[in-house]
Structure formats: structure tokens, C-alpha cells
Amino acid sequence: MDTVLFIIFAVVAIVCAFNLVLQKHPISSALSLIGVMGSLAVLYLLLGAEFIAMAQMIVYGGAVMVLFVFVIMLLNAGSEKASSKSWFAQLAGLPLLCAFVAVLGFFVRAAMPVLRGVRFGTWVGGTAERIGQVLFTQYLLPFEVISILILIAILGAVVLARKEID
């Protein structure tokens, strides 16, 4: 069952990611990215990370991507214009890409140790309770720092996006 689920959602994620890169219109790309995030949330569930899966949907799917879609709608961003590529990219792009993928594949095969199979439900450490415990004891300082960071980000966004007063 989890094999089938993994294959389905991995394929969905890859197809959506390709779509993100290939689509001309930003809103199609945004929708594809939401697809990637949704399928990643399912994969997180398979890996026993239920809290992270839900946080993924709430933070990425609900907040970040809604902002993206909102900005695309607000600016009425049209399709992007195709720009002229350099002769070097046109000529050597594909062979270089193939070579790169081959080298990468070789190293992945060589370096990857034999890892255990993932069975859904064998490890359920990712509960909200456990994460909260670790977050507020072991990782308390990073947590506080990151809340300051997000506060600064909010202030920065407000300053950047406010109307010019002159």
C-alpha cells in the first residue's frame, strides 16, 4: 500500500515540478508548486511526520502560496516573454546536462548505502507532542531567534509595501 502511494505521489510531484519549470504563465507555475507541496505532504505522512505534513499544508499551501497567487492576481502578471538564448547554451546545453546527470547518477549509486525500507507506521515519532517537547527544550534558542526573524520580516514587508508618503 505505501509503495503504491509513494509511486503515485512521487510521480505527481515530479510531473508538477516539471510543469513549474515549463509553464509560461506564473499562475500555472504556482498551481504546479501547490501540487508538489500537496504530494510532499502525503510523503511526509508516509514517513511518519504527521505534524510536519500538516504544517506543510498550512504554512506552504495555505500561507506562502496564497500570497504568491494573490500577488500574481494583483499585478495581473502575464505570460513571460521568451528571451533569446546565447549560442553557447543552445549548442552545449543538452550534452552538458546529460553529462551532469550521468556523473550525478554515478555518485548517487556509489555513495548510497543500502537503506532500510520505509514502512508506514513503524516509526511514529513525528507527533505534535514529541515535536513540541524537543522544540521547547533542546531547540529553545533557535526557536526564539526564528520568532525574532519572522517579526523582522513582517516589519520589513510592511515598510516595503506601504504607500509612499510624499
Binding site: 504554512v59 506562502v64 500570497l67 526564528i146 513582517i154 514587508a157
Partner: peptide
């Protein structure tokens, strides 16, 4: 943490884009 940073980044980045 990555998610939180991404959210902060999206807020600032989209403000810059605007």
C-alpha cells in the same frame, strides 16, 4: 525552521517584487 524561514522570505520577497 525551514518552513518558517520560507514564510518570512516569501513575505519580504513578495513585498520587494511589488
Amino acid at each position: 525552521f525551514v518552513m518558517v524561514v520560507a514564510a518570512a522570505e516569501a513575505a519580504v520577497g513578495l513585498a520587494i517584487i511589488l
